[in-house]
Design a protein around this nucleic acid. Structure first.
Lengths: 265, 265
DNA sequence: CGACGCCTTGACTAATCTCAAGGGTGGTGG
DNA sequence: CCACCACCCTTGAGATTAGTCAAGGCGTCG
């Protein structure tokens, strides 16, 4: 149970660096572009640059100077945009191994905010690190970052499809499938369960639905035995069935299929 | 009137290369990162590599091998994703000066299709061109491409906000404002008018609304004197009013403000 | 002339939102 | 220990928005 718990609650953050790094390296390595040498470089560099934030901290604020690109090593964060009428749209989730906007260094004002959802451990790619990784000396690392950026763009496109073309229950099921797949690739699932630190309000702001409606469709999904959501543990008793019900296909995630790998190792 | 007409209808494509290039170079140069030398390089290189497609040609097909990055020099294209239930979501518009996915070279299968909406002139960044621009010899050109990629990501995020948080009339007004601003920056507007080759079905697939509903809200906007849409000419008699009605702010477009520039030159 | 693509409108249906109320839980301070 | 508050989840009822179905108009092209 605790094998996938990570930082559910703000509090003393685990300092076991090697474990902190595993999600990122695993995520990067899965693209098959990193050599052992690259991985060693990443591990030693990141271990020295780790920063920790508790839940609910703003990393970047809409309209402000953007942060340098950041790698999330542990915990969840999310990006959102605020409208003048107080409504809010969550535009991205950042999971362990994910990277915030890679080309952000060229921009003076960001269009969106980023906030930690749980306690997070991140590494900021300051100028020296950025130069080191993209300067030509570690071409495979640079390529891995580019792949992550492409994957983020593909997810953003799929969200437009989700918001534009799917019904309420489909939208909710779809985002749950996506998060589950993304977590599984970095080893943060336990069988058919995973940690899910989202409130129903978060889900509403992700899917563009009202809180009340999310609650009711979530109940339908529960009644149909497609999901179970107690505490902050999400269980998907039949992932395939939920995917079909949500018109979900993992293709857009550009992930390496780890379902076999899980079974073997 | 014809000063912004470009390729409204499939047919013989203008071959005045220097004019073809202007939108792209203008778009790039506006970021203030290009030197005259860079511009000269782009112009001579692109002039030799121009490709022309008529309206309705698939440039990339969902699930297929992606095209190399492409620069649109003239005409409109759009990206879309098809769902198994035959529904379709348009996820992007590519206007003169825009660039398709820049990191696409690392990917084996694309998640979305790209189709020309009008006749288009494009330049494909084949391996040699890509290497030339990003190999370190033209750092400002590489930076300009990165800025375009960032701008595309920001637009994609705003679309999620549009689809998730805005009402039908706001969504429709918002996308019209966005396209108008983007066209103005590359010199493709004429006062408060621009060429708009979209059908109401296209608008429906962009905004996630039904065709019938788009038609009725479009009528409302017309009756409120916020838009006029005859032939394929869009007129915005009061851009500010439409922006307020649509909760639109151009910040996310990362554009240089050209409204003064237009008035002066 | 007929076919086709696109736009328009009305009537009815279905999905989603808003408003309102109440319940559970955990933390905090008296 | 209990009272209270904050936050989150839950449910029902009625209002509103958007979708579906059906029909017709208008212009272009063969």
């Amino acid at each position: 149970m605790s094998s996938f718990g990570l930082n559910a609650h703000p509090g003393p953050v685990s300092r076991t660096e090697s474990r902190d790094l595993s999600a990122f390296v695993r995520s990067m390595a899965l693209y098959g572009v990193l050599d052992p040498e690259d991985i060693a470089v990443l591990e030693t560099t990141f271990a020295r640059r780790l920063k920790h934030f508790e839940a609910g901290r703003d990393l970047v604020l809409q309209g402000g100077k953007p942060l340098n690109p950041c790698v999330i090593l542990e915990g969840w964060a999310y990006g959102y945009k605020l409208l003048p009428n107080r409504r809010r749209q969550i535009v991205s989730y950042l999971l362990p191994g994910d990277v915030t906007d890679f080309d952000t260094r060229l921009v003076h004002r960001t269009d969106h905010s980023i906030t930690s959802l749980t306690a997070v451990s991140i590494v900021e790619l300051t100028d020296d690190l950025f130069e080191m990784f993209t300067g030509g000396r570690y071409p495979r690392i640079a390529e891995a970052f580019r792949l992550k950026a492409y994957a983020a763009a593909a997810i953003q496109r799929e969200w437009a499809v989700n918001l534009g073309q799917r019904s309420a229950p489909e939208r909710i099921g779809h985002i749950l499938c996506e998060l589950f797949h993304r977590l599984r690739v970095v080893g943060l699932t336990d069988g058919n369960r995973c940690f899910l630190p989202l409130t129903q309000t978060d889900l509403a702001e992700t899917t563009g639905l009202s809180l009340v409606h999310v609650n009711k469709r979530l109940r339908d999904l529960r009644n149909a035995d497609l999901i179970s959501l107690r505490g902050k543990i999400l269980t998907l008793p039949d992932l395939g069935a939920l995917e079909r019900a949500s018109i979900f296909s993992a293709d857009y995630l550009n992930l390496v299929d780890v379902s076999n790998r899980d079974a073997v190792s």
